[in-house]
């Protein structure tokens, strides 16, 4: 395959090995590029697509979900359950349950894209770990309430 000969090969080989050593010794003194994860954290891009989350509407103090069920229908793995009920004297259904089974979710974003009201968005949460499967069955209404530390006004009203 090559015709370097006995000594040519020795010379070529020794040179290539020394060049290799030169590369690694230079790298040895260059700054490290990794982060010590739980101690430091990388800045995460705002476009990161975590699991879905209900969007808080600051005007109404609630969420915009109209319980149309489009998201649940679009989901490839049936991980969303949306339930609502029509209360007396109201035109539309109001949201009573919005649960996400994150163990099945493949983060495709179909639900976010199909939502006619833009009531869903991706969360930025990537530090997700747990000991049981049940920890990944999220109640998104409860999460939204916890995030804003107040019961949802619109969850009851749905206007």
């Amino acid at each position: 395959m090559n015709n370097r000969g006995y000594f040519g090969e020795l010379w070529f080989g020794a040179k290539s090995l020394l060049i290799g050593l030169n590369v690694t010794i230079k790298e040895l003194f260059r700054p490290i590029v990794t982060v010590q994860y739980p101690r430091e954290e990388c800045e995460i891009t705002p476009n990161y697509r975590g699991h879905v989350e209900l969007v808080f509407n600051t005007e109404t103090g609630g969420c915009d979900c109209i319980v149309c069920g489009m998201c649940a229908k679009a989901c490839p793995s049936d991980c969303l359950v949306v339930k609502g009920e029509k209360k007396e004297g109201e035109k539309r259904k109001s949201l009573t349950l919005f649960s996400l089974d994150f163990t099945k979710c493949s983060l495709c974003g179909s639900c976010v894209e199909t939502c006619p009201k833009g009531a869903l968005d991706y969360s930025q949460d990537y530090n997700i770990a747990g000991f049981t499967r049940e920890e990944f069955h999220y109640d998104l209404i409860e999460r939204l309430e916890r995030r804003h530390q107040q019961p949802l006004a619109a969850a009851a009203g749905g206007n």
Binding site: T24, L28, P31, I32, Q36
Partner: peptide, 13 residues
């Protein structure tokens, strides 16, 4: 430690 720094990571910390 040496292998870590050659590979640009902190190693044992």
């Amino acid at each position: 430690k040496v292998s870590a720094h050659i590979q640009r990571r902190p190693g044992l910390m």
